[in-house]
Structure formats: structure tokens, C-alpha cells
Design a protein around this nucleic acid. Structure first.
Length: 429
RNA sequence: GCUGAGGUAGCCUAGCCCGGCAAGGCGCCAGCCUUGAAAGCUGGUGGCGUUCGCGCCACGGGAGUUCAAAUCUCCCCCUCAGCGCCA
């Protein structure tokens, strides 16, 4: 949520920033917010005046009655106020709620370093690592490797739960866990506290952390409960300090979330290919940070460096893109995607999303900065980044490390987590 | 799921039965005092609006009764405890 104070004091800056998103609807929204705000303030003054008169009369009535000298003319005037006030108040709350509802639909203000562009084709590559292997044609898709190894069952997954669900089997489960443990250990070594969060959230905190439009398209809802399955541990981690005052001296707070993630994504791309690249359920290790406003740009680079380190140590070639204005999500002020090289597809595909959400989530969640338990004027910044998602992390390893005989070489850094094993071969019948 | 107890400012609490300016403590800030600090004393310490005089609001949320609601009535939410169920 954009700071309303900024909208009032410097609407030109806000307008210019929103214009870079290339969606005129946001400018209309902003103007509506400003108009409703002006109307609301005028209306509030009217209501305050009525309430003031009511308070005065109440005191006078109380005084005259205590003296035993009733004043019927005061009673008469006082009796008229509630009806009048009810009307003004109804309009006042309507304006206020209308303004706030619109305000919450505005996206975050973007950092100046976000490149101007229409869609993902205009994202700017800012870094590359490793040599993309050119021998795609001779390789199998990650799904074929999985099935060849006997370590996934997509057909039965569909039958039991529908398209987009799968069973992982045998040693692939251990590799999945190894990948998570590897990422978690890396982060723990860099000052992150591991967190196993709730896998469901109430709606109110959920509206604080995400784009409201996501509810229809992405979220799984628990029937007859005010609960949603989390789409990423970013969301419960952001809600960890819901409504609290964070002591400035305790910041930055670095958290490493580990959880399954649940996504419908019916509005977007759907489930587009066999395998585990885009699925309804996967595991993810996530970086999340609460920090002081001035340090969030530096911490964004720190999170990006950590995520890059995961893929470097796995020896998977990748590139980093600075996501352009037209492709940036609602909540982020700036976002890097890390795109790993998938040799079979001969393409870079997104495996990490690394965002600075500035004060957008904190303000919506009612999280404030303070000292010694007292609230200050500022709200903390929040940032999040994938460390590794084991659907896509596994998929790229399966493409990168597959052998011509159908076996899978295990990346060096994962071997300690698999009892020193160096490769996986076919299991089961 | 049942029963009970609760939700008051950054935190803790009183007020509720019996309607009339939300009291007190802690913490924090400032001043006094002190070489400095602590203690002590004094004052301050929320949100919104503002014509900067001030006004309004704030007791989990909403509705109602009333000139007037933390207080009375109704509905809802949440937390805790006990019981039940349970990996």
C-alpha cells in the first residue's frame, strides 16, 4: 500500500511512478483515491462539528439535571442530533472505505533502477554465470529422466489429484530433501534463522502480503474456514510480525522459510507440460528479510547473491534479469529473476524471484518500526527471494546432470546429504 | 465440538454490577538535580482532521437503546484454560 501521506503531499511523483507501469487504469485509480480523500476530509469535518455540538449539549444536560433544573430546550435540540449524525456518518464511512479499498488496489511504487519496458521480453540481463551447454537434442526432458529412473509417477498423480499433481518416489525424495537442506544450510551460515511456518493463513493477513487479484487465480481455499493454503512461505513469514512494532535495533531480521507451496494458477498459464516445472504443489526454501528502509537496496543485492550462490554451487548455468516496469508484479518495487539454463529446452527459465517490496507489505500488515516498544512513524521494508524451489531446482538438475545411460549424477554439494552417493540409477520395477 | 474466563493506549492493569470528560503503573522522551549515571521530583508520551485556535475519535468488530455507552441489549470475531477428539 502506498503511503497516503505521500499521495497527498507529492501526487506528481506518485503519478509519474505509476505511469511507468504502463497501465492507465492505475492513474485513474490514483485520481479517484485523491478525490475520495478530499471528499472524505470535508465530510469528516461536518461530522466532527455535529459530534462536538452533541458533546456540548450532553454536558449541559448533565449539569442542569444535577442542579435539579431541567432544560427542555436542550433536550429538544439534542434529540435531533442522532438522526442527522447518522446520515453524515454513513456517508463519511462510505467515503473512507471507498478510498481505502481503492488505495489497496494501487501497486507499489517502483525503484528508479527498474528498466522501462512492456513485458518480459524487455527485462534486462544484468549478469550471467556458467557456460550454457549446446547439446540439447541428445538430452531427455526432466520428466522422461524421472520416469526412466522410476522416481516419479505422473499418471497416478493425475488420477488421484488431477493435472499438476505427481508422486515423487524412492531416492528422488531424498534428493528433494537434500536440495532443501543444502539451501537451508547455506542460508543458516549467512545469518538466516530457519522457520517452518503455518501452511495456511487467514484472509486478513493474506490481503496484506499479496495482490488481491491473486486470490481467484492462485489461492487454494479451505472450505468453510477462513483459511488459505500458502502459495509460498514468503506469505506466512511476512505475517510473522502482523500488527507488531519491530525494534529498530533488532533489524535486519533474516529468515529462511521452508515449506510446501500450493498454487492453482488457473488464470495464468495453467499446467503446460509434463513434469514438475509448473505444478500445483512443490517445496521451497525462501529468504525473507525485515529491515530499515534505507538498507533494503543493499539487502536486495545480498539476497540475489545468496540465490546465485545456490546455483553456482550446483554448477547450473544461469543469468539474472532486472524485471522491467511492465512485467513487475503489484507488490514489488524492484525484482530480479534468476533464469537457469535448461539444456534440453535450450532456454533460460525462471528458477528464482528476488524482490524488494519496500514498505508495501508492512503498511498493509500494520507492522511498524519503533524503539523500546514504542511505535515510530516509519514502517520496515520487506524483501523476499527464492533460495531454491525443488520443483524447478530438481528439474534443472535432471536436465543438466542426466547421463546417456539414463542415470543421474548427483551434484557434488548434495552428496554429503545423500550418504556420499554419487549417482542415482533406476529403482523399482 | 462443549463449558468457562478474557480482549482497555507500546506493555500491564482499574473502571463494567449501578451509563455522565478512560484512572493508575511500567517503559520511553524532556526538564530539574548530578562531575557523569542511577535514584528521586516535575512535565510530556495514541490516531484522524485542522482555518494550527482547536475539534473529533480511540476500551476486539458491528448493530441497537439513550441527550449521553468501556459500562445496558443483540449479533459476530479472536485469544486462553478445562473437557472431548486426535498423529
Amino acid at each position: 500500500m502506498i503511503d497516503l501521506d505521500l499521495i497527498r503531499k507529492d501526487p506528481a511523483t506518485v503519478t509519474a511512478n505509476l505511469a511507468r507501469r504502463r497501465k492507465p487504469v492505475y492513474i485513474d485509480l490514483l485520481n479517484e483515491v485523491r478525490q475520495k480523500d478530499t471528499e472524505w476530509r470535508a465530510c469528516l469535518q461536518g461530522a466532527d462539528l455535529l459530534r462536538r455540538r452533541r458533546n456540548e449539549l450532553s454536558h449541559q444536560i448533565a449539569e442542569s439535571r444535577s442542579k435539579g433544573t431541567p432544560a427542555p430546550e436542550l433536550d429538544a435540540e439534542a434529540k435531533g442530533i442522532p438522526d442527522e449524525l447518522r446520515e453524515v456518518e454513513a456517508r463519511e464511512t462510505e467515503l473512507l472505505h471507498g478510498r481505502d479499498a481503492l488505495l489497496r488496489r494501487l501497486p507499489n511504487l517502483m525503484d528508479d533502477s527498474v528498466p522501462y519496458g512492456v513485458d518480459d521480453s524487455e527485462n534486462v540481463v544484468v549478469a550471467k554465470w556458467g557456460e550454457p551447454s549446446p547439446d540439447g537434442a541428445s538430452r531427455k526432458s526432466h520428466a522422461e529422466v524421472l520416469e526412466g529412473l522410476g522416481m516419479a509417477d505422473f499418471d497416478r498423480g493425475r488420477r488421484a489429484s488431477g493435472a499438476g499433481f505427481y508422486y515423487l518416489l524412492g531416492s528422488m525424495v531424498l534428493l528433494d530433501l537434500a536440495l532443501q537442506r543444502f539451501a537451508l544450510d547455506l542460508l543458516a551460515g549467512r545469518g538466516f534463522t530457519p522457520v517452518s511456518p503455518p501452511y495456511m493463513l487467514r484472509r486478513a493477513p493474506y490481503e496484506g502480503v499479496t495482490d488481491l487479484a491473486d486470490f481467484e487465480n492462485v489461492m487454494y481455499k479451505i472450505e468453510n474456514e477462513d483459511l488459505y493454503l500458502i502459495a509460498t512461505s514468503e506469505h506466512p513469514l511476512a505475517a510473522l510480525y502482523l500488527g507488531e512494532i519491530l525494534d529498530e535495533d533488532r533489524l535486519p531480521i533474516r529468515l529462511a522459510g521452508v515449506s510446501p507451496c500450493f498454487r492453482k494458477e488457473i488464470g495464468g498459464h495453467g499446467v503446460d507440460q509434463k513434469g514438475i516445472f509448473r505444478v500445483h504443489q512443490f517445496q521451497k526454501v525462501e529468504q525473507f528479510v525485515f529491515c530499515r528502509p534505507e538498507e533494503s537496496p543493499t539487502i536486495l543485492e545480498e539476497l540475489r547473491a545468496n540465490a546465485e550462490e545456490v546455483f553456482r554451487q550446483l554448477r547450473v548455468p544461469y543469468r539474472v534479469v532486472n524485471v522491467c516496469t511492465g512485467d513487475l508484479g503489484t507488490v514489488a518495487a524492484k525484482k530480479y529473476d534468476i533464469e537457469a539454463w535448461f539444456p534440453r529446452q535450450q532456454a533460460f527459465r525462471e528458477v528464482v524471484s528476488c524482490s524488494n517490496c519496500t514498505d508495501y507489505q508492512s503498511r498493509r500488515l500494520g507492522i511498524r518500526l519503533g524503539k523500546a516498544g514504542r511505535p515510530g512513524k516509519l514502517v520496515p521494508h520487506t524483501l523476499n527471494s527464492t533460495a531454491v524451489a525443488t520443483s524447478r531446482g530438481l528439474a534443472v538438475i535432471l536436465e543438466q546432470y542426466q547421463q546417456p545411460d539414463g542415470s543421474l549424477t548427483i551434484p557434488d554439494v548434495l552428496r554429503p546429504y545423500l550418504g556420499g552417493r554419487t549417482s542415482l540409477t533406476r529403482e523399482g520395477s
